[in-house]
Simulated assay, not measured.
Amino acid sequence: MKRVQKVVFITLGFVFMGIGIIGIVLPLIPTTPLLLLASYFFVKGSKRFEVWFKGTGVYKKHLEGFVQNRSMTLRQKIILMIFSDVMILIPLFMTDKIIVKVILTSIIVYKYYYFIFKIKTVKVRSY
């Protein structure tokens, strides 16, 4: 892999990790998907950074359970759903094209199906 590409991946990993950490404090920013993105970029960028990231407390507290067990707390699900709904509803209301409205509505419906039936809800994380 090109060195520049690795640097970009590692940089994006730190950017998404930073925003995800901010999301721990600010409930409007979804922590889990941002940390998943950070993990993806660290894996693509460097084995060393992947190992480092998976050893951090942030990863263990907010992401490890999801990655291993495909589970989230109800609070995590609700915050993520609200954030993603707002992001999808903005273009939904701004467009006049029916096909775009149908696609966005389908995404919302599928998202609820997936989060309700495919991701297990746990009360308390065991670390």
Results as ranks from 00 to 15, higher is better:
residue 1 M to S: 14
residue 1 M to V: 08
residue 2 K to A: 06
residue 3 R to E: 14
residue 5 Q to E: 03
residue 8 V to M: 13
residue 9 F to I: 08
residue 10 I to Y: 03
residue 12 L to I: 09
residue 14 F to Q: 12
residue 14 F to D: 00
residue 15 V to R: 12
residue 18 G to R: 08
residue 18 G to T: 00
residue 18 G to S: 04
residue 20 G to T: 03
residue 21 I to A: 12
residue 22 I to Q: 07
residue 22 I to M: 11
residue 26 L to I: 15
residue 27 P to G: 01
residue 28 L to V: 15
residue 29 I to M: 05
residue 32 T to Y: 11
residue 32 T to Q: 01
residue 33 P to D: 02
residue 35 L to A: 01
residue 37 L to Q: 12
residue 37 L to P: 07
residue 38 A to M: 04
residue 39 S to Q: 09
residue 39 S to G: 01
residue 39 S to L: 08
residue 42 F to E: 07
residue 43 V to Y: 11
residue 48 R to Q: 06
residue 53 F to A: 11
residue 54 K to A: 08
residue 56 T to K: 10
residue 56 T to I: 07
residue 56 T to H: 06
residue 58 V to H: 09
residue 58 V to S: 09
residue 59 Y to S: 00
residue 59 Y to F: 07
residue 61 K to L: 02
residue 62 H to Y: 12
residue 64 E to T: 00
residue 65 G to H: 07
residue 68 Q to E: 03
residue 70 R to G: 05
residue 70 R to Q: 11
residue 70 R to T: 07
residue 72 M to H: 04
residue 73 T to Q: 10
residue 73 T to A: 03
residue 73 T to K: 14
residue 76 Q to V: 06
residue 77 K to S: 04
residue 78 I to M: 09
residue 83 F to C: 01
residue 83 F to S: 09
residue 85 D to I: 11
residue 87 M to T: 11
residue 88 I to G: 02
residue 90 I to R: 14
residue 90 I to E: 12
residue 91 P to A: 09
residue 91 P to K: 11
residue 92 L to S: 04
residue 92 L to Y: 15
residue 94 M to G: 09
residue 95 T to D: 00
residue 95 T to V: 07
residue 95 T to K: 12
residue 96 D to E: 05
residue 97 K to H: 10
residue 100 V to L: 13
residue 100 V to I: 15
residue 101 K to Y: 00
residue 102 V to C: 02
residue 102 V to E: 01
residue 102 V to W: 09
residue 104 L to M: 08
residue 104 L to A: 06
residue 104 L to Q: 08
residue 106 S to K: 13
residue 107 I to H: 07
residue 107 I to Q: 02
residue 107 I to G: 00
residue 108 I to E: 12
residue 108 I to P: 08
residue 109 V to Q: 03
residue 109 V to K: 11
residue 109 V to Y: 12
residue 109 V to L: 09
residue 110 Y to A: 06
residue 110 Y to H: 08
residue 111 K to S: 09
residue 111 K to M: 10
residue 111 K to W: 14
residue 112 Y to N: 15
residue 112 Y to R: 09
residue 112 Y to G: 07
residue 114 Y to F: 11
residue 114 Y to M: 00
residue 117 F to Y: 12
residue 118 K to L: 12
residue 119 I to W: 04
residue 124 V to E: 14
residue 127 Y to D: 04
